[in-house]
């Protein structure tokens, strides 16, 4: 029963953010510096609240628009592993320390995974 207000709050917050945060025009933010692009991709994925499908589609569009595969991978991985929007619910149910540490670790891991994945793909040709 204690999870009811948290779940309702999460659904309301997610729908609010999906309506308020525009997805268009994200291309313009990329392209200044490769490392910055990777960080930006990871940050966008972390604050995104939509279905993973939307992350893949956005990632595909960004890649087609010339954004590096490393930055797109960082976005895709943080989209499904880091939850800034879900952080209050995670902290309430699993503990603040757990939620903060886990999300921070996932953010760093996503960047490492992005570099490793693209590195391995380059090695494989």
């Amino acid at each position: 029963m204690h999870m009811l207000p948290i779940l309702l709050g999460m659904l309301l917050l997610t729908s609010l953010l999906l309506t308020l945060l525009p997805r268009e025009g994200l291309h313009a933010l990329f392209g200044r510096h490769e490392t910055l692009d990777v960080l930006l991709g990871a940050v966008i994925g972390s604050v995104a609240a939509g279905h993973p499908l939307a992350g893949y589609i956005l990632g595909g569009e960004l890649l087609a628009g010339g954004v590096s595969l490393i930055a797109v991978t960082a976005l895709i991985v943080t989209w499904v592993s880091v939850g800034v929007v879900q952080l209050p619910a995670e902290a309430l149910l699993l503990g603040r320390r757990f939620a903060l540490t886990r999300n921070l670790l996932c953010f760093v891991s996503a960047i490492a995974i992005a570099y490793l994945t693209v590195g391995v793909l380059r090695l494989l040709g």
């Binding site: 204690h2 999870m3 009811l4 207000p5 948290i6 309702l8 709050g9 309301l12 917050l13 609010l16 209050p88 619910a89 309430l92 149910l93």
Partner: peptide, 12 residues
């Protein structure tokens, strides 16, 4: 946790 949940809902 229960109080925090309701507070979270109230803020949203």
């Amino acid at each position: 946790r229960k109080l925090g949940g309701w507070l979270f809902l109230a803020l949203v």
